[in-house]
């Protein structure tokens, strides 16, 4: 069973439906103690970083995520905000601490020219930096749906976690991976076949053992 964390940041409906479409059972988790029961954790979310981290902290998710994901090495897939939370901090509307699992800072997208719009909305092709199992069976330069105004600026000492990037007037980290921890800036649940394929790959990888 895969747990989808509900911490009040938007609708989880599309994420649930996408897993349904690949015949993978999920359960929505509102009580952090239930994280111990699932085999893998999905943390979706759109909205403001500060609000999201506050909700996670206040509902007691932060300690238990540290325990389950960092200590027990339970597979984790962060989507959009769920990737950005991995950073040490975000500069979105002030300065907010993240989970700090990856050395880096979340910053506003600052493209080299005005033809690149912010928010970065739409379908962009990935440059795969590391052939991770989650990219299995995808076409070359797979295209995924993005919608965000901030991105994770991974510190040079942690650059080995960058699994994929895309271009939007600047290089944008599109996916990270370190051991059991995965994060994607795009929305696999909204990326048609490529998205469902990536979710399937994550599930296969997560439930392998």
């Amino acid at each position: 069973m895969i747990g989808i964390v509900d911490y009040g940041m938007g609708n989880l409906r599309s994420v649930e439906s996408a897993f349904e479409a690949i015949d993978q059972k999920t359960t929505v988790i509102r009580d952090p103690r239930e994280l111990a029961e699932v085999q893998a954790i999905i943390l979706p979310g759109v909205g403001a970083f500060g609000d999201g981290m506050r909700n996670l902290r206040e509902s007691g998710f932060v300690e238990i995520l540290n325990e389950e994901v960092l200590e027990k090495e339970k597979p984790y897939l962060g989507i959009c905000l769920g990737l950005q939370f991995l950073a040490e901090k975000s500069l979105e509307q002030g300065e907010h601490d993240g989970l700090g699992w990856i050395t880096g800072t979340v910053r506003r997208i600052d493209p080299e020219s005005a033809q690149y719009r912010v928010p970065h909305i739409g379908w962009n092709d990935l440059r795969i930096e590391i052939e991770e199992p989650i990219f299995k069976n995808l076409e070359d330069g797979p295209i995924f749906y993005f919608v965000h105004s901030y991105y994770m600026d991974v510190s040079p000492e942690d650059s080995s976690v960058i699994a994929a990037t895309c271009w939007h007037g600047q290089k944008i980290v599109a996916a990270v991976q370190r051991g059991n921890i995965y994060g994607v800036q795009f929305h696999p649940e909204k990326s048609q076949r490529s998205g469902l394929c990536l979710l399937r790959n994550f599930v296969d990888q997560a439930l392998k053992d």
């Binding site: 409906r13 599309s14 439906s17 929305h187 909204k190």
Partner: peptide
């Protein structure tokens, strides 16, 4: 929401904050 895994939006006669909330909760992006 159960069948389509791309973004979709809803428009037409959205008047209030509550109207917005309802369509977003139903699954529209």
């Amino acid at each position: 929401a159960r069948e389509i895994f791309i973004p979709y939006s809803v428009g037409g006669g959205i008047r209030t904050f509550e109207d917005m909330r309802r369509v977003l909760l139903a699954g529209a992006e």
